[in-house]
């Protein structure tokens, strides 16, 4: 059956709902793009030129990207072995872990950041002594970076954990692990050569969701006082008209690029994993 004849078999109302849904998403985006071009009719992309010419944009954008990459790496290091061990050895702990991973949906980011500041803005001392073994994390830049990456890991946890867990569900983790063990593989070899390659599409999904969350995040970055892209965009939106529209559209393009990447990579894995 050709693609066109398959399209014709889709019921009329399905088309209507598809178009309504598509318009709901596309119209605001188109409006934003259209607005971003209206600053100066003589130079249609003036808002983009101005935005990209601003050093502050590149500074905050690169900084947020670095934070996002760090969050992704540490999340993978934490969540992949956790999800793997729960599937393999501790299935009874799954409900508890799933509950914990849902906490960021229940506890707002503002509470999280106040909690972090409250705990980590005082020096760490040995109880009942005056011996301080660590200065407050909020007092130095590396400490603040540790705090913000930890906070982002919490915010991204529901997406990362679910992506990884779903990825592991699609391959028979237990049997693959046992097969690798019987062939002499240790845990490092099993995770790096058997598990990770077979859940790479799920990892990428989780990583890109994490990336999207971190790059646009405002609350944690504002309260921890870091120069991230989220607060920059927020400030820009309060004082300018056209640049925020241009940067919003630019962010959408980045997200689409990321989704395209997911399709590309997961398509490849679909072939490798086949019918499993």
């Amino acid at each position: 059956m050709s693609f066109l004849s398959r399209l014709r078999r889709v019921p009329f109302w399905s088309w209507i709902w598809f178009l309504v849904g598509a318009l709901y998403f596309i119209l605001p985006l188109f409006a934003t793009f259209e607005f971003s071009l209206t600053w100066d009719p003589a130079i249609p992309f003036k808002a983009y030129q101005r935005s990209f010419a601003d050093n502050k944009f590149w500074e905050t954008f690169i900084y947020s990207n670095v934070l996002a990459v760090a969050t992704i790496i540490f999340s993978i290091v934490l969540i992949v072995p956790t999800a793997y061990w729960i599937r393999l050895r501790l299935p009874q702990a799954r409900r508890i872990v799933e509950f914990i991973t849902l906490m960021p949906f229940v506890v707002p980011a503002i509470i999280l950041v106040f909690g972090l500041i409250r705990i980590y803005s005082t020096p760490f001392s040995i109880p009942f002594t005056d011996i301080v073994f660590m200065q407050p994390l909020t007092n130095f830049k590396a400490g603040t970076n540790i705090l913000i990456v930890s906070g982002y890991m919490v915010l991204a946890m529901p997406y990362m954990y679910r992506s990884v867990d779903t990825g592991m569900r699609t391959v028979d983790i237990r049997t693959l692990t046992e097969a690798a063990q019987s062939l002499g593989a240790n845990w490092f070899v099993i995770i790096s050569r058997v598990i990770l390659p077979n859940i790479r599409s799920a990892l990428l999904s989780g990583a890109l969701l994490t990336f999207a969350i971190v790059v646009g995040e405002v609350t944690l970055a504002s309260f921890l006082g870091v120069n991230a892209f989220g607060p920059y965009l927020f400030l820009l939106g309060q004082h300018r008209a056209y640049e925020p529209a241009a940067l919003s559209f630019f962010s959408f393009l980045l997200t689409w690029l990321a989704m395209g990447l997911i399709q590309l990579v997961s398509g490849g894995q679909g072939q490798a994993a086949g019918a499993h």
Partner: peptide
């Protein structure tokens, strides 16, 4: 002994070939 120290070959019902 751990399974990876035994030098025992195992064949599974679900084949357990590495898909990648």
């Amino acid at each position: 002994k751990a399974p990876n120290q035994r030098n025992v070959g195992m064949i599974f019902q679900s084949y357990a070939l590495f898909p990648n």
